[in-house]
Design a protein around this nucleic acid. Sequence first.
DNA 1: GCAATTGTCTGACTAAAGTCAGGCAAAAAT
DNA 2: ATTTTTGCCTGACTTTAGTCAGACAATTGC
Lengths: 300, 300
Amino acid sequence: MTEIHPEDPVARIRRFNRAVTREVGVLDASFLGRGRPLGAARVLNAIGRGRGEVAAIRDYLGLDSGLMSRLLRGLEAEGLVETAADEGDARRRVARLTPAGEAEFAAYEALSDSQAAAILAAHPKPAALLAAMDLVASALGRGDVTLEEADPRTPAARGCLEAYYAELARRFADGFEVSLSRDPEATDMIRPRGLFLVAISDGLPVGCAGLKGHDDLVEGARWGEVKRLWVSPSARGLGLAGRMMARIEVAAQELGMARLRLDTNSALPEAVAMYRNAGWTEIDRFNDDPYPDFFFEKLL
Amino acid sequence: MTEIHPEDPVARIRRFNRAVTREVGVLDASFLGRGRPLGAARVLNAIGRGRGEVAAIRDYLGLDSGLMSRLLRGLEAEGLVETAADEGDARRRVARLTPAGEAEFAAYEALSDSQAAAILAAHPKPAALLAAMDLVASALGRGDVTLEEADPRTPAARGCLEAYYAELARRFADGFEVSLSRDPEATDMIRPRGLFLVAISDGLPVGCAGLKGHDDLVEGARWGEVKRLWVSPSARGLGLAGRMMARIEVAAQELGMARLRLDTNSALPEAVAMYRNAGWTEIDRFNDDPYPDFFFEKLL
DNA sequence: GCAATTGTCTGACTAAAGTCAGGCAAAAAT
DNA sequence: ATTTTTGCCTGACTTTAGTCAGACAATTGC
């Protein structure tokens, strides 16, 4: 067996790849063990996971249209799937699970869950394992983070906000308590008044940013405030903050805002540096929130 | 797309699996792109990686003996591999790469290396990524850690020892300097005087332990000292320390020792706790090393 | 209204992977 | 010395995955 010197990072990655390659067979053994070939199982799972349009499945799984058609036919013959023409465009077909298909999908899900739970239960430090998996997954799936508008009261948004508050509490010398801060009303961060973005990487929320609309005018024009900009540690360095800010700037213009402002704190030096680099100028305090000590503005 | 609540660890693992499943195809694309089917490429790589016996390859890759035979024959026809009967048991066959096979194997290795390097280069925090990959790989490949006897001067052993010294320097309030400590002679930790173990997980050294033989007798019998017991952070909690200690105890008996001793430090509470739980009893100081403040003994 | 395009399906392939039943020689057991 | 077992090989399969050319209907562009 070749030996890997600890100082050789390339070799370490390759070791990781080998471990994962071998293990993924086991991890995805849920796809096997139910007497169905991998291809059919993958299609069944894609449908169960909410992908209905045949074209979307084909694209997601990277299948040829002929093969796709045949796999679908096989699942139909088994009575697990029904297809119907898309209303609106009868060339497209939409697949749906039958009750038997739902049951089969649930069986795959249960298998997969129990395997994941077994790995977790066997590990002495599940939290560290999860954090490491998140980081690796984010690094591997780097391009796949999507930004979605969401109500800040949805679970995904709340999860991000709570992680954000927890991080502030950790990093501010005197802690952080939301109720003492100027916490924006959710409705101020929903169109048409504002906006709330959640960054999603393969289903997991990994960041958020809010745009709060204000009613008063500054120099005769509407303005907005950037709030709750946060990126999960597992997804830092991928340029997510920049992407979210860009989306917010575009949206702010759509909403008729001429000016953006934000406040932040010197205990978050990477944030301060980012604002400076992104064309924000430091201004005087514009609110009475007790926590911030840096104030920025950007004209659109 | 299903949303994953951050508090649901099972869902997070499954997300990781998906990310990895999809990516592993890419990671192992080195196996493709050279005009050879996956099966043949895997066999070629297994041989290049030092697995010679046909049975061992078959076992490692999980192949049927008929299929294995055919793949081997294909590689022979390409002039990449030669097989010969095992000396000693002419039923077994041993495969070896020809020079052309070596070149082909090297090409796979280079492809794989450059892909790994590209991932690394694209990541903002390579060290964190590597640590996370190590941890995940150790968790997934948990059963696969092998203990090997090694000369403490080999690179794998030196890597572990340096990591061990660095950790002591970090954890002792006043640092740690090997030259001030009672550093055993390498020959005292080699049979027949002693023993040095390195724990290897898929090629990466993840732990070590030494048994130093002493010449003086205690109560009329030979004794040994356990030194340099260390487990990499990425592999902690897998019970490796216990496995290494068990191996050392067996070896100590083989070497005619009736008693084991060791010293440690209260700055390493998990080590102290482990010794207590493993049947060691605290004794008085038995050496003049400046660093330890706890001394243990175990009768065999 | 007609041609071009799009989305799916079918038939006719190929390549790869895997299974199974023996065959044969070497080694081990009796 | 014989039987049995072991390790590998071969031939004759099957299944899965994947490709390609064309058929066909619905839709879009002009």
